[in-house]
Design a protein around this nucleic acid. Sequence first.
DNA 1: ATGCCCGAGAACCTCGGA
Length: 259
Amino acid sequence: MKIASWNVNSLRVRVEHVSDWLQANSPDLLCLQELKMVDEDFPIDVFSELGYHSQFTGQKTYNGVAILSKEPLTNVVIDMPDFDDPMRRYIAADCPLANGETLRIVNVYVPNGQALDSDKFQYKRAWFAKLQAAMKNSLSANPNTVLVGDFNITPSNLDVHDPKRWEGKIHCSDIERLMLQKLMSEGLYDTYRHFNADGDQFSWWDYRGAGYRANEGLRIDLVLSSSAMLNKAIASSIDESPRKLERPSDHTPVIAEYN
DNA sequence: ATGCCCGAGAACCTCGGA
C-alpha cells in the first residue's frame, strides 16, 4: 500500500504533472490539496483513464481536497463533523487493505493562519482543535488510520531551512507545534521522520526569490500513521522531482509505503 | 523588507498563499 500527499496549488494547472506522477509512481492512494476548482470542473475522466477513482470536494478559487484511489472508496465523509465551514479542507474515506482489513484515510488542508495575531490564526486554532476531536473518534473507530495533508506546521526546527529566520513565525511557532503535538498524542506518528533522521528535507519551497534552487524550504506536508499503521510502514520519502518541472506546484509529494 | 512569485477572478489590480 503506497500512499502519497501532494498540495498541487491548482489542479487545473497541474493536471499533467499529477497524471505523469500517477503513472510513474503508481500509488494506491494519492491525496491532493488546493484544487482551486469547483466539483463540476474536476477531471474525473483524466484519472479514470489511468485506473483511478476520484473522491473530491472543491471550491471556487480556494482550497479543495481529493483522494484518488486504485480501489473504490467507501464511507466518504466531506467536512469535519460539528464544524460549519464553507472552506473545503477535509475528506475522509475507507480503503480496503490487502489483508482484508480497512484503512481509514483522512486528507486535510490545514488553514495557513497567515500570522499569529490575525483572525485567520484563530480560525487555524479552532479548525485544528476540531481535527483533533475528529481524529480521536477515527482512531477509536478504526486503528488502521492514516492522516495526510498540508498541515502548514513544521514539526520541529529540523524541518526548517533557516530556523533563525522563521523563529516564532507562522508555520514554525511554538503554539502551532504544540497543537500538532497534541493532535499526535492521540496516537499518530510522523511517518517520514520515523524513517529519516536528517534535517534539511522539505516538501515546500517558496516561489519567491531563490526558493527551490537555494533549498529554502519547509517540511509542512505530513503523513501521520496510527501505531497499527506505523507497524506496517516500510518506507517514507519526499519526491522532489515534480518541483523541478516547468510551472511546478510550490509543494512536492510526500510518500509512505506499508506492508 | 508584511517584499521577492504564483494562481484565480476580474479586470490590468487585489487577495491569499507560506
